[in-house]
Design a protein around this nucleic acid. Structure first.
Length: 481
DNA sequence: TGAAATGTTGGGGCG
DNA sequence: ACGCCCCAACATTTC
């Protein structure tokens, strides 16, 4: 048993059911804990007011409190993780460093660099499976190949589930197991947002509760609704989904706990929700096994689509001024809150790529900037699914009709009215297509189309035809999927 | 985890 | 009574 180890928190901001932390506690007499505000990551963020940095800071503060309660402390650093981690490990004379595995190409490269530095100094670096139930090499087809079709992957995942380790990783709670770092200098307070170069956001006003307490509360709210998930999940005006994505993203709840809750519930709703967790594993595996999806179409034959990439259309989409009410409501929800309902992610993505003929990477990047729950694997997978460039994507000729989707999933226009208040006075029928209002109806609804709310940036029927031509153009021989 | 175009059927109005 | 047409309603195919 090593004398002391270092656990490096990244996207696993909890003590409970944390595989790498648990391993460190089992194999070392004393465990130090560190979180690094990594300037290699923060430096890429484009906005100074970023809800995610604030979310993380709250989580880190809570982690520090929780560790203090167990007699330890959380070392919080601000710098390049590839330098800070080996330097800290040397100073602590840690025998080994533990962390939970990350599947993104940049993170893999970072971890390899850290590993080289640690090994050079005779320290071990352990990466544990924690984020997912099954990793990329655990589920393979009969021929030993990776699954690229979700239905087959899900079947294999479910078949293998009984052998999955879903036991909560034990947390060694005895006082004294967590080490306190005393380097002789006064203890440093946690950095403030300003120290990190960021500004306060509306995160807390929005009712988003960070930390494991926030995760517990969000999960507790969802459990009684889980059985209704299948029926309720498609309606953005309804509280039908779990809202746990941001907590899964930052690891304030473990995926194992969520799987256990779904299995315990056992309802049809729970099974549908479990499938969403399986999608998550699936996209982590796809990203790991096919890293070219970062920046490139999974389907290489659809790499060179002739997008028109008109800036004015992209701006209209980003700002929620396309003239299609549900699309605009969704984009304004994203801009204001950092959240977007999944059905609306599909709708807005389809609209950008197919109606507006803007490169899916532009939309992917915008979502990456805005989403509180942004995750490279899931976001890339979702965009490539919508753009029809992905593995097991929707067929290229499948094009959402933004008006029909609106009538179907927001029939009374409740969601639209919440985020596009200028349409509040429209009838339930015409709120989905306000450009069809007569001048008298516009006056009665107190909204003039083209003045208070834009006319459609593109005509649906024409845009649909243009999209079909765009896809047909680069694969004339095939003609169909 | 669509939608539109096209095809088919059957009831009812009507000469 | 009968045939014809219209057109919902539903089914199939096409993108």
């Amino acid at each position: 048993m090593n004398d002391s180890a270092l656990h490096w928190f990244r996207r696993d901001l909890r003590l409970a059911d944390n595989k790498a932390l648990s391993a460190a506690l089992q194999e070392s007499a004393r465990v130090h804990c560190v979180f690094v505000f990594d300037t290699d990551i923060l430096g890429k963020l484009t906005r100074r007011a970023d809800r995610r940095v604030e979310f993380i800071l709250h989580c880190v503060a809570e982690l520090a409190d929780d560790l203090a309660g167990l007699g330890g402390n959380l070392i919080v650093l601000h710098g390049r993780a590839v330098e800070e981690i080996p330097r800290l490990a040397r100073r602590l004379q840690a025998g080994s460093v533990y962390t939970n595995r990350d599947y993104e190409p940049a993170a893999i490269a970072r971890d390899q660099e850290v590993e080289r530095a640690l090994n050079a100094d005779g320290m071990a670096f352990y990466r544990c499976k924690d984020q997912v139930v099954f990793e990329q090499d655990e589920l393979v087809s009969q021929e030993g190949r990776a699954y690229t079709v979700f239905a087959a992957y899900r079947n294999a995942w479910l078949k293998r589930l009984p052998q999955a380790d879903l036991e909560p990783a034990p947390l060694e709670t005895a006082r004294g197991r967590f080490a306190r770092w005393d380097d002789g200098t006064p203890p440093r307070p946690l950095p403030r947002l300003q120290d990190l170069g960021f500004e306060t956001t509306n995160l807390l006003e929005l009712g988003i509760k960070p930390g494991t307490t926030g995760a517990d509360q969000t999960l507790g709210d969802f459990l009684p609704r889980m059985h209704a998930y299948r029926e309720a999940r498609d309606y953005p005006a309804v509280r039908g989904v779990s809202y746990l994505s941001v907590h899964l993203r930052f690891g304030t709840v473990s995926v194992r706990r969520l799987v256990n809750e779904a299995l315990r519930d056992g309802s049809e709703g729970a099974r549908t929700w479990l499938a969403e967790l399986i999608w998550r594993d699936f996209y982590f595996s796809i990203l790991y096994l096919f890293p070219h999806v970062v920046g490139h179409a999974f389907r290489r034959d659809l790499e060179a689509l002739p997008f028109t990439n008109r800036e004015d259309r992209f701006d209209a989409w980003r700002e929620g001024h396309t003239g299609y009410p549900l699309v605009d409501a969704a984009m304004r929800q994203l801009n204001r809150t950092g959240y977007m309902h999944n059905r609306l992610r599909m709708l807005t993505a389809s609209f950008l790529v197919k109606h507006l003929q803007v490169d899916w990477r532009w939309g992917e990047r915008y979502f990456a900037e805005q989403l509180n729950d942004y995750d490279l694997a899931a976001n890339n997978g979702g965009w490539q699914w919508s753009a029809s460039t992905g593995n097991d994507a929707q067929p290229w000729f499948r094009i959402f009709n933004p008006v029909l989707q609106s009538k179907r999933f927001d029939a009374e226009g409740r969601f639209i009215r919440r985020y596009v208040p200028e349409l509040a006075g429209c009838s339930d029928k015409l709120v989905h297509e306000p450009w069809k209002m007569s001048p008298a109806e516009q006056a009665a609804a107190r909204v003039l189309i083209g003045e208070h709310y834009p006319a459609p940036v593109v005509d649906h029927a024409q845009a649909r035809q243009a999209a079909l031509r765009m896809f047909q153009g680069i694969r004339p021989a095939a003609g169909s999927a």
